[in-house]
Amino acid sequence: MTRIATTWERLRAAGRRALILYLTVGFPERDSALELVPRLLAAGADMIELGVPFSDPLAEGPTIQAATQRALANGITVRACIETVRTLRAQGIAAPLLLMGYLNPMLRYGVERFCQDAQAAGVDGLIFPDLPPEESGELQAACDRHGLDLIQFVAPTSTPERIAHVTEHASGFIYCVSVTGVTGARATLPPDLPDFLARVRRRTQTPLAVGFGISRPEHARNVAAIADGVIVGSALIDQIARGGDVEGFVRELRAAIDDVTTPPPA
């Protein structure tokens, strides 16, 4: 059983939801992830998405774009991201670690080589926002060969056919985009989010994790009532960028999520 599956099993047994945090590798400094990841996990995170910097991150809003540019200026490459995971594992980090990035750097690295090196370093899953599910066959096969979960996306605009395809091939969890737009902190969550998740839930028992726009503890609490996991990225990067109380922010998110004790809708 993979680390991701084991984590979901543990959370379900405890009646809890997952808190999944996104962190750009190389931000704010080249080796910051080596210090930040243990702090985030100690404060209550269950899984960490490690962002692989790319010059044209089309799904990202201003916050993560700025973090990505800083990371690129710090000399971060695909290889550096893989080595970051290797070092974190050597430090004793046992939680699921996922690489989230864009196709072009991975394709230049080589699909098979990328998956092989990622698995050897201790990566558990991959997330590529610009990979259409219907075109993911080559990468899915490589992930299967190397024991990696390939996380697929659905959005409020996803057709029934797209949702059916994703739920049929999903592993690890399904990334449910809460809004039609790019990443970034928002004041409110869309009112149709419960209906969107219900459409996906009817087709699968794979855990559903919601991301994009979740920036406040009350957002996390509301999402936890209808999903299996809560993903926070831009709001965390904002905290890091301004030197805020990162652990305090994560503990507030964790407490809000843990306020929800009933199972998510079946």
Rank of each mutant, 00 (worst) to 15 (best):
V250C: 00
A220H: 05
T7Q: 13
L97W: 01
G244E: 05
M1R: 14
E134D: 10
P105S: 01
A5H: 14
A13D: 11
V111W: 14
Q239K: 11
A14W: 02
A80Q: 04
R145T: 11
V182W: 09
E112L: 13
I64R: 05
E168Q: 15
C176L: 08
P160W: 08
E60C: 03
V52K: 03
A5G: 13
A121N: 06
G122W: 02
Y22Q: 01
P105Y: 10
A209R: 09
G248A: 02
P96Q: 04
D195N: 13
L253M: 14
P38E: 03
E60W: 00
G248E: 10
R201T: 08
V250G: 02
L131V: 03
F114D: 09
R203C: 11
C115D: 11
I48Q: 00
V154R: 08
L150P: 02
E9V: 01
A42P: 10
R221A: 15
Q239E: 15
T261D: 09
S32L: 06
P57Y: 01
R70G: 07
A80F: 13
P265Q: 05
R202N: 12
Q91P: 11
R30I: 10
Q69S: 12
A198W: 04
D31Y: 09
L97D: 09
A227R: 02
R201A: 11
R113S: 14
G101P: 07
A225I: 01
A142Y: 03
V154I: 13
T87K: 15
I174T: 09
P263G: 09
E60N: 15
I82A: 01
T6F: 00
A185T: 12
A90H: 12
A155R: 06
Q116G: 00
L11C: 12
L99A: 08
